[in-house]
């Protein structure tokens, strides 16, 4: 079970959180001008890397905050936790 550091509450077990998947995905728009392939990319074509991934999590059974973190999908190591709107950290 992962140990995740909520920016508000500190380190808490994974069961208190839900994962919202990859973060920093921009919703395409305005809708009347979005080509089908761009919409398909938004819905389905995620990076799904073997390695470091920026994803968003919610402290569901805690303060309710949505925030971002960087997790290695192989080792589960969490190398960075940052708030919504904070600059996107570089990942190797």
């Amino acid at each position: 079970m992962l140990l995740i550091t909520c920016p508000e509450c500190g380190a808490r077990p994974e069961t208190e959180f839900v994962c919202g998947g990859e973060t920093h995905i921009t919703r395409p728009g305005p809708f009347a001008e979005v080509p089908a392939d761009v919409w398909a990319g938004y819905l389905f074509h995620q990076a799904n890397p073997r390695g470091k991934l920026r994803e968003r999590w919610r402290h569901q059974a805690g303060c309710g905050l949505w925030f971002n973190l960087v997790r290695d999908t192989v080792t589960h190591e969490i190398t960075s936790v940052y708030r919504m709107g904070d600059p996107k950290p570089e990942i190797a």
Partner: peptide, 13 residues
């Protein structure tokens, strides 16, 4: 509720 709040926090802060 969680759905609305996700949009509020993540897309329309």
């Amino acid at each position: 509720y969680a759905w609305l709040d996700e949009w509020r926090q993540c897309e329309f802060p």
